[in-house]
Design a protein around this nucleic acid. Structure first.
Lengths: 141, 141
DNA sequence: CTTTGTGCAAAGCCTTTGCACTCGC
DNA sequence: GCGAGTGCAAAGGCTTTGCACAAAG
């Protein structure tokens, strides 16, 4: 994801306004390699800006998604995860014990292609590989 | 998924009771190669048994999952999909236009392995590959 | 000044749950 | 009969939305 300054410019260029609240959300996500829930972003930003509402975070996150600056993941844990890593194609490891989501890269030739059996019948725009299991931290307590 | 009779026996063997409602849910799923939502199963069963409640469908579906007779998928479309195909390992094509989910098989050597970079740090129990895109039916109207 | 963003609270959607009644076993 | 299953309706998460006020451009 881009820096706060870059995002400020992109938002303005799109006719979107930039507020301190939005910049606080930008800052909370920039350089973050986690996959926070909207709630988690809200909590984090709240410490510096106690009146920010969840609504503002949801809207900012959706605007960021529309600009392609984040991806919103639904890994089946109930809440949406915000993934600020959009530069590199990657996939995910989901720990079913702690709910943490971790990125994992695939070598280009390891990304599964659409099987021949359905080529021509389905026109994919993206592939997502999700490994579910237990992370090391949860395995040895 | 197994037949209504087989499921009846398995349920009884587990100390679970078998009611006409549950058998109606079994029947709605057996031999179904779709991925209905709980709501869709409920509607379908309702035509023959108008008083069946959503609660009963949810509970039956969860019991089926506990016995490994169905898989519950969350493909990020809001509702859970019930996948009666548990015999063959397979993956999914999700049409972002109509919401339909279709099975797709991978050759054994095409299923992506956990990348070397994280081996030893994560202990997967399952891999899920989801292709998102548009199905043929939606492409040409 | 116009228009978008914000905060609050209420509503929506899907799923789960409490309770009393029913009915499998 | 005992206890799990059922139906109804209410409650629970998470996300979205209506409204009036605030503030960016």
């Amino acid at each position: 994801m881009q820096t706060v300054e870059e995002l400020t410019e992109r938002f303005r260029a799109q006719g979107l306004r930039v507020t301190p609240q939005r910049q606080a959300v930008f800052a909370a996500l920039h350089g973050n390699d986690g996959h926070p829930t909207v709630e988690a972003i809200h909590e984090r930003v709240s410490s510096a800006m106690p009146t920010i509402s969840l609504r503002t975070v949801y809207q900012t996150v959706h605007d960021l998604e529309a600009l392609g600056e984040v991806r919103l993941l639904d890994v089946g844990l109930g809440s949406i995860r915000v993934d600020p890593n959009v530069e590199a194609e990657h996939h995910h490891l989901v720990c079913t014990a702690c709910g943490r989501v971790r990125d994992v890269q695939f070598a280009a030739d390891q990304v599964p292609p659409l099987p021949r059996s359905v080529r021509g019948e389905f026109h994919p725009t993206s592939v997502e590989v999700v490994f579910r299991g237990v992370c090391d931290t949860c395995l040895r307590p």
